[in-house]
Amino acid sequence: MAQAPGTLDGAAVAALGGWVRERGIGSAVSDVEPLTGGTQNVVVRLRIDERRVVLRRPPPHPRPNSNRTMQREIAVRQTLAGSAVPHPEFIAGCEDLDVLGVVFYLMEDVDGFNPATELAPAYAADPQMRHRVGLNYAADLARLGAAEWQGRPLQQLHRPGSFLARQVPNFRVLLESYRHEHYRPEVLDVGTLADWLDGHRPPDSEPGIMHGDAHLNNVLLRRHVPEVAAFVDWEMCTIGDPLLDLGWILVCWPDDPDPINAGRELAAAGGLPSRAELITAYDDAGGRPIEHLDWYIAMACFKLAIVIEGTYSRFLAGQAHREAGERLHDSATRLIGLGRRVTTGDNPFV
């Protein structure tokens, strides 16, 4: 079904309204407004009768795994329901492709702000708010890794065998999948870093929930207290080793080096905790032991570089904007270089 980039067209709104009525969720859909769009998944705010909700669906040019990604996110919402982990509450999901042509779901609209694009007045006025919210963010990440998942929908993502041993091969396959007539994966020189990661892999630990893309662009913060209102963008969530999330936030933390410019508006105000303080807050909240932290940081560099390189490949195929593609390719190249530094004992992230 046709859809304008980043939002829902009239036919989609009508189809959604029919589905909402059929499911008994409400009677009318109105006030549709885009929250994000373009190359990533589409998120729109709307009203069902007088209730404000958010709809999430794949991008206008869905990737081959886009519907599976939405199914994964539905399982996340269902698994975390009632937990202490901050997340948008799940309302309903739809896997019937006759409705919008893709899998989609509805969730509660969270009252919070994204620190990549906004800075709430309370944070602008008080550096201690900015400092405390960073520490609370690391603590919430530790709580996510300890959250219950067995016997819940996310259990379907748990695979037997070594999670860590699968990482390098899986992400090299992902990088190769970007290949087309205008893009060669060899331009991102991952071989040396990949070999080190395979050769220095730590033992597997008890599996737990991973967000998979934890950084300050993927949270909403409460406006008046220094707390995370919700982790968002769960498309990379899995059951694996939660220490990879810790490595990920350290790599993406808006401090020198800052390879992806996460949490831009919050970071620009200053006062955020150091990476060392994040590690302490994570540990104090019951996080996993960190004796192999260098490996997890290097792996985060490797994985993040390959993930964001996909936008460059899509740009070269005419499916993403030039600015995003070229900017993320530069970041991916820089991340591989930073990962190599970690392997030599020169860890710029701690």
Rank of each mutant, 00 (worst) to 15 (best):
V103H: 14
A124G: 15
I91V: 15
H87A: 14
V99A: 06
F113Q: 05
D109P: 02
N114R: 02
N114C: 15
M107H: 08
A116C: 13
F90L: 11
H87N: 11
T117A: 14
D111V: 14
G112C: 10
S83R: 06
G82A: 11
S83W: 04
V99R: 01
A120S: 15
E108S: 12
F104L: 09
L100T: 01
P86S: 09
D109W: 10
A120F: 04
T117C: 07
G93V: 12
E95T: 15
E108N: 13
E95C: 12
A81S: 13
L100K: 00
A84S: 13
C94N: 11
Y123E: 03
E89M: 10
V85Y: 00
P121N: 12
N114W: 03
P86F: 04
Y123H: 07
P121K: 08
F104D: 00
H87S: 13
L119E: 00
V110H: 07
Y123A: 03
V110L: 10
P86E: 03
P88F: 03
A116D: 15
P121V: 08
D111A: 15
G112F: 02
L100W: 00
V103T: 14
P88D: 06
P86W: 02
N114M: 08
A116Q: 14
L97K: 12
D126T: 09
L106N: 03
V110A: 09
S83Y: 06
S83M: 07
E118P: 00
H87R: 09
A122H: 06
P115D: 07
G112S: 09
A84E: 13
D98R: 12
Y123G: 01
A92V: 11
D111H: 12
L106I: 10
P86H: 05
M107G: 02
P88E: 04
L97F: 10
A122S: 15
G101E: 04
E95P: 00
L97G: 11
A92H: 09
V99D: 01
C94V: 07
S83N: 10
D109E: 14
E108M: 07
H87F: 04
S83V: 12
A124W: 07
A125G: 11
P86A: 08
V99C: 09
A92G: 04
L100S: 01
L119G: 01
A92S: 13
N114E: 09
